[in-house]
């Protein structure tokens, strides 16, 4: 047995775990090796020192505290602790919850067309937002080449009943569109708030595809830029829907231009020439409406079909031309 092997057995000797053979070999080596004997003595003293360290005692009341903790907290204390969480815990939770709800709301908005229509309905209502009205009027001027004075001042917010009417109109449009899909020929005429497209659909002959004339019209409407017309249509419902039976269809186009021009309004046409079967849109200042109506009655038999209870500053009028 060499010194290394002997020292590897120190722990086993200390714990009295050596076999008789191992003990004899180790004791023999220790008798003949002073270094290992000294090392063994130091090893033994070290372990004895360790054994002499007493057991530490738990603090007074330790067992009682553990017993109380093991019984659990009363429910009312748990509730209070949960409600009044420390701020550094509560704040991140609240922020996370806010972000989650916001993300969910945006997701639902994007995924649900009904919500988008409900949100957009007030914006496309009777009165355009003040920031949009002048620019759209300017677009319409370019379409017709009319000289219009200054940009209209920002319009006042619509009265409550007008807004309500607009919302009703939006609802009616939805119902109307659904009925058109179900039975295109038997659809009812549009109420106030119906748009040009909806009015055209009403005029379509039974069984005719209502989309076809619209595409045709859009091809014919040379004077109006497609995006300008789209913008005009997107402005929302009509405040008045009327039927005009001209005395002279041949001169109708020129007469109508003159009347609208004199009233300081703008005319949006869907065709090169206005004639029976056409639908035109006229936008005039509220004050000029009586002059426009007077002019229309001079042109022919003008019948008001539907009319909003009150007009905004800029009145949108849909005119159906008939024989």
């Amino acid at each position: 047995m060499n010194c290394h092997e002997a020292r590897e057995l120190f722990s086993a000797k200390m714990d009295d775990l050596l076999t008789a053979e191992q003990r004899a070999a180790l004791d023999g080596h220790l008798q003949g090796c002073a270094d290992c004997r000294r090392e063994w003595e130091r090893f033994r003293q070290t372990v004895s020192l360790l054994h002499s360290v007493g057991e530490a005692r738990a603090p007074a009341g330790f067992a009682t505290r553990v017993m109380q903790a093991s019984r659990g907290e009363p429910w009312h204390r748990r509730l209070i602790r949960n409600v009044f969480l420390p701020l550094h815990v509560r704040l991140p939770l609240e922020v996370a919850a806010l972000l989650l709800v916001s993300t969910l709301a945006i997701f639902l908005y994007r995924q649900t067309p009904e919500i988008q229509r409900a949100v957009e309905a007030p914006q496309s209502g009777v009165v355009a937002p003040a920031s949009e009205a002048p620019s759209k009027s300017a677009e319409a001027e370019q379409v017709q080449g009319y000289t219009k004075t200054e940009a209209e001042p920002p319009t006042a917010p619509a009265p409550a009943e007008e807004r309500e009417g607009t919302l009703r109109g939006a609802k009616d449009r939805d119902q109307f569109a659904r009925k058109q899909e179900a039975a295109p020929a038997s659809a009812p005429p549009p109420a106030v708030g119906g748009r040009l497209d909806a009015a055209r659909e009403v005029q379509a002959p039974r069984g005719q595809d209502v989309q076809a004339p619209r595409a045709k019209d859009s091809q014919k409407s040379v004077p109006a830029k497609p995006e300008s017309k789209a913008a005009a249509r997107a402005q929302g419902p009509f405040h008045l829907m009327g039927l005009l039976r001209p005395k002279s269809p041949a001169t109708l186009d020129a007469e109508l231009n003159d009347v609208v021009k004199q009233a300081g309004g703008i005319l949006v046409r869907d065709a090169d020439r206005v004639g029976p079967g056409s639908i035109v849109e006229v936008v005039v200042p509220r004050d000029a409406y009586p002059r426009l109506e007077e002019g229309l009655r001079r042109i022919g038999d003008f019948t008001i079909e539907t009319r909003a209870k009150a007009f905004p500053d800029q009145v949108r009028i849909g005119l159906r031309i008939s024989n």
Partner: peptide, 28 residues
């Protein structure tokens, strides 16, 4: 076992507060 467990934790961690927490957690 309370003293034995506390003592082992104290000799391992070297801090009475830590040892008390660990010992309590053991019994819980």
């Amino acid at each position: 076992y309370q003293h034995r467990i506390f003592s082992i934790a104290l000799r391992m961690l070297g801090d009475r507060g830590d040892a008390q927490e660990v010992a309590q957690e053991v019994f819980l």
